[in-house]
Structures are given as C-alpha cells and as structure tokens.
Design a protein around this nucleic acid. Structure first.
Lengths: 209, 209, 209, 209
DNA sequence: ACGATCGGGACGCCCCGTTCTT
DNA sequence: AAGAACGGGGCGTCCCGATCGT
C-alpha cells in the first residue's frame, strides 16, 4: 500500500533534519546560542527532543551544522554574484561593481536566510571554534581589490586593505540591521547610495583634501 | 563616631557596586546576557552573591545598570568630542570632522570601556527594553549632518540620511572589531583612511559615475 | 549460491550474540548494571544497537543472559572439580580436599571468565531476581561438608554449617580480589596457605583454646 | 546573643548535611553509585535538590563525603576496639584476640552504619579515586600480626601475610553478608566459630598434617 | 531471520536566579 | 551583607519501539 515507503523513510530523516536546521537557524539568529533552548527549537520544528538528539548529539553539533549551512549558502551566493558580474562584464571598474554586487547579495541573504544570520551571530559571539563567517566572503573581496589595484581601477593612493576594511564594516552594519527588524528595501537603497558616496567622494573639493 | 561608620560603609558600598558593575560589564560584553552567570560575576568581582542581590535585586537590574553606565559614558564622550571639535574649529567642513572625531572617540571607548561594549551588545541582543545604544550618539551625528547639509559642507546630491546610515554601519563594524580581539591602533588607522576614502571618493573619475 | 545464506546468517547471529555476551559480561563486571550503558556494550562489541535489541529485547534480558551463562560456567567447573577430586580419590579427608579444589576452581574462573565475575556482581547488587550466584556452588560444598561430618573427617566439634560460612566468606574475598585488579598467582598461593591454616590451626596450643 | 544566632544557623546547615549524608549512605549502600538518583536521596532526606547542590555541588562530592564519613567511623571503631583489647589485656595471644575483636567491631559497624557499608561498596565499585575502605583497618591488622609473629604468638610456620589475607577475605564475606539482608546475631556467632576453627584447626590430627 | 535506521519519551545531573532567614 | 534553601529548566543520555531493508 505504501509503495514508496522506502523513499519516504529516507526522506523523512532528511526532512526532519531540514526542519531542525531551519528552526535552529531562526532561534540562534534571534536569541544567540546561550539564550536558545533546544526544547524551543524542537517545539517550533515540530520534532521531539529524542529525534533531535539522534541527528545532532549535542547542542553545539546542531549549532555547527547551522553555521556550516550558513557559510555554504554564503559561498554559493558570492560565487553566483561574481559570475553574474563577469557575465554582464561592464568595462568601467567591473571589479568594484562586483564587490558592490556581493554586498547586495549578502544583504539579500541576511534578510532571507536565517541560517546566514545565525552563522554571522554565532561567529560574532565566538560560540564555535569554527571559521568566522566573514571568511566565507571576505577573501573574495580581497582578491578582487588586489586585482582592481593592479589594473588601476582605483585611484592610486587607495589602499586595497583599507577598502577591504571598509567593506567589512559595511557588511557588519548590514548584519546589525538584519538582526534589528530586518533589511527593508529602503535600506538596500541606502546601501547603494552609500556605495555611490564612497565611489565618488563626499566633499565637493574632490581629492583636494 | 557613628557618622564616620556611615561614610565608611557608604564608601564600601560604593566600591562594591563599582566592582560589580565592572565585572558584569566585562562578562556581558564577552558572553552576552544569557551565557553570563551571576556567580561568575561575583567570583570575578570578589563579592558574594548576597552582596550582589542586595545592590541589584535581579539579573536584569544589573544588566540595566551596566547598560545605563555604558550609555552615560558614551554620551559624555560624544559631548567631549563635539566640544573639542568646536574648540579647534577648522573652517573647512568642521561638521564632518566632528563626526569623524566622534567615531574615533567611540572606537576608543569601545576598546577601553567594557561597559560600552556591553551596552552595545545588550542592545543588539535585544535583551533589555532600554533605549538602543546607538541612540546615545546617532542623533548627534544626525543633527550635525543636517547642519552640514544646510550649510553646503557636503556636495549637493549627498543625502544626509545616507551619510548617517553609512556612519552607523562604520560604527557597527567597530563594535564587531572591538568584540573580536580588540581595536588595535592599526585599526584606528584603517578607520581614518576609510573616512578619507569616503570624503574624497574611490574612483579616479570623480563624480563622473 | 544463496542456499546457505540461512546457515551463514545463523552463524553470524550466533557470533553476534557471543560478542554481545562477552562485551556485556566485561562491562557489567566492571561497572555494575546501572553504570553500564547498552551503547558502550555495542561499541565495544562492534555491533549496532539495532542488532542488540533484536537479540535481547531489553537490558535486563541481556543481563539475565550474562548471569545465566556465568552460572552455567560455574556449575560446570564445580562438577569438573568434584569429578577430578573423586578420581584421584585420596583417603585422608578427600571431601575437604575437594572443597579446597572447588575454591581454587572458582578463583580461576573468576579470574578468567568475565561472565562469572558479572554473575557474582549482578547477584550481589540484587539487580536480578535470579538465583544468587552462590547457589551455583554453595549447595555442593554443603553436601560435601555434611558427608565429611558424618564420616568424621572433621573434628567432632566442628560445625559443618560454620565451615560452609567460612568457605563462603573466602569466596567472597576471592570475588572482591578478582574485581580489584585480578587474582594474581601469588593470591592463589595465599588461598592455599590460608586453607592450610584453617586445616591445622593457627595457635601453637592446639585445641586448648 | 550573637553566639546563639550563629550556632542556630550553623546547626540547621549541619542538620541538613547530616540528613543528606545519612540518606545518601543508605541509598549508595543499597543501589550503588550509578543506580542511585539524587532525587531519591532528596526525597528520602526531606530536602530539596537546591539545598543538596548547595552543600554538595556534584554527585561525586556527595559520594566522597559519604565515603570519608564511613572511613572515619571505621578508623574510630578500630581504634576503640584496639584500645579495649589492650585494656583487658589477656596474656594468651592478646594480639590475635584484638584482631578478632576488630572483625567483630567491623561486623557491627557494617550492620549498623549505612555509611560504612556505602564506603565499602563505593570502594569495591571503584567509583571514587579515594583510598580504599580496607585501607582504613587493614594496616592495623597487619601491624598486630607482625608483632604477634615476632613475639611467637603464632605457630612458627604461620605467615603473617597469609593471616592478613585470610582476615581480609573474612571481612569481604561480612561485607557481602551485610549487604544481603544484614548480619544477624546468628551470623556473628558464625564469625566467632569460624575464628575458633582458624585458631585451633579443623582436622583432628592437629599439626601432624 | 537478521539487522540498521529513525524516532520517542523519560529522567538524571547540573546550574541558575531568587527568596528568606539571620 | 552572608548563608541557606528553593524550584525551575537545560542539556545530555539512556532504553526502548516502530519501521524499514536484506
């Protein structure tokens, strides 16, 4: 009567894991590691504690899984954003545009994917001895900046390292915003406008300063 | 003779409260609210639990006190920075310089004062229903930006709101950095350099973009 | 080609059961019933929990199996020791010698067979409502002592019941020794010497006391 | 007036600790370490878990306290038994009589004091890394035996070490008996009779053997 | 038959924040 | 201000079914 029982059962484990991961990501991103109880996760995932401990023997294992997932999503998104950037291949400062695209992608991700928010938060709170979430996208930006520097897409006196720091700061701001009420579309507009400022300068005098 | 004992014990109470606040600030800034136990605070402050509950009846009361202290320190520092800026009163873009000075002051504060770090963290984690830490300095920046806009210290098409967002993002980055290993002097240099970039633009073409 | 699958699988089942019994015996004898987890047994036996629950539906069933095995080993050993004693059939106090032989056999068994140690321990800890391990050898000794008494192989005033108690105490000592570091050959020597003392008395004055 | 309040509060804590220790001793001696739950201890002691964790932060700390208490009781009893033996100072084999007295004292203790039974059991089960219970009385016996040997209170060929082993075995038997239903007065009679056997020999031939 | 996966409750210990007494 | 006691969870673990492959 249940001709697909085998697949169902295999799928069931997978689905259980997914629901767990999703619920855990949401809770971790909202309340942090210490303030999140496994029981609440179970409740909101519709799974019993027994099932949870079967798939993730310890709380930290679950957090690590969430973190890993968030990092994976981030890497994929960054890769996509970069590819997309190459595809449309504008000739003026394509590297910078790609970086901007990456930050927009991260903003979208932070808004839409609890796992990514959770990865960021768990990294900030130093709960895990895992790779920091920033390491899943910053190196890419670094590389792009180096290339942009070599090919003179930036003004000569612009230090790529400083640009990287600035980018990291912007993303930190995005993280904070995402956690506090979410990134509204208006915020995305602000991000774009901020980048415009950075690109062309704030003061009228130009480089005079 | 009785009068003296009063003063002495008042002093002791004051000192106890100070040590408690200091220890709590450190722990909260490091581990967040949920992961910090009152017992650890007592231990690291050299104070018994009884004494703590006498001064702060509940955990949240202690956290609120820490937060309030951090906010007060922040306000004072911002006021100082602004006054200092006015004092030296340069004529080109003094408002912008004062904002930059404020961010530097915040960086120093985040590095040196655990209570300020704790205030930031407790705000981000939404543990308290208190005013957000950013509200202790952002309005000032907002005001300065409005003035700068009105007096044309910025390029015309620069939106003060966007500048405020950008400033907030930078400070978020500082918060993150302060929590992760501290703000080294080098980082301060990066902050300054980043501001330079923002002021004068990144791309060679200037406003062409 | 698949004709002997059943036999093969039967063999495998048998082997699985053996490994389980062996591992369980070791763990039970070391850590007692409550401190032994089925998972550790499975781990040390190289068997999954599923296999275990198939062969032994409950923990107590497993413990009972171990106990039963230990008792069976003990009975067999006692029978052998008795037979051996009869065979060599010395005429001076053969009954007593056989009893001594039995204690030596028990010592050897306790040293070599985890299941026997486990049976003893589970009995002592009253975990099972099974027959006590001592009942697997004490009756035999009792019988021998009655015969020895009737046939005057003991001094007249020696109460066989007291002798039985003394024997039980000695074996209790062996159990304790076996559990604490094992029964070294030297200990066996001590056992023999102790029996010599019991046989011939400790004090110089003889029966005067 | 200050003195009284101090003592009262101290007394309450002391009484709580005593009840806890007593209940824990009973449970540990009956069910061993692993099969004993702190909640049952609290229930049977009429104390809440919170109070328990205040006095004994961990289960092992409680067990250690019980063990220590049992050992102390044992030492005191052995000292008393020895002193008593010296006092009555019989001239024939006083050392041996004292040893016998010690075993009787231990029997009484095992029967009456749960803490002593618990100490024995926890030692046997190797739950604690504490000194073994036997070490609280065996050295004394050893010493007495050496003296008895030197002063020829034993037959020349009697090895004191063997006598010590025999004594330890007897006490192991007592432990087992105490745990299984208690040491009835009849058992004490058996113990005395067994010692008589050991002293004067079992076989009729006397030392001829 | 034999075995493995998956899931389900139930405690157990630990710890925590708080109150009450002194 | 300190000591003592309280009750509530939290995490981990455990022992066990129910279900499904071989």
């Amino acid at each position: 009567m249940k001709g697909r029982t085998d697949m169902v059962s295999q799928d069931r484990a997978e689905r259980t894991r997914r629901r767990l991961l999703q619920a855990a990501a949401t809770e971790f991103s909202l309340n942090g590691y210490g303030d999140t109880s496994l029981q609440r996760i179970c409740g909101s995932a519709g799974v019993t504690m027994g099932a949870l401990t079967f798939h993730y023997p310890t709380k930290m294992a679950l957090a690590t899984a969430v973190h890993t997932h968030g990092v994976a999503l981030t890497r994929a998104a960054v890769r996509d954003a970069a590819a997309h950037g190459e595809a449309e291949g504008g000739e003026d400062s394509p590297r910078l545009l790609r970086i901007i695209g990456i930050t927009h992608a991260l903003a979208r991700l932070l808004q839409e994917e609890p796992a990514v928010r959770a990865a960021g938060r768990l990294s900030r709170d130093r709960t895990l001895d895992q790779e920091h979430w920033h390491d899943s996208w910053l190196p890419y930006v670094h590389e792009l900046l180096e290339q942009a520097h070599e090919e003179a897409e930036l003004r000569a006196e612009v230090d790529p390292k400083v640009m990287a720091v600035l980018t990291r700061f912007l993303v930190s701001g995005l993280e904070a915003t995402a956690q506090a009420g979410g990134i509204c579309p208006e915020c995305l507009g602000h991000l774009g406008a901020a980048w415009d400022l950075v690109l062309s300068g704030v003061t009228d005098g130009g480089h005079a300063r």
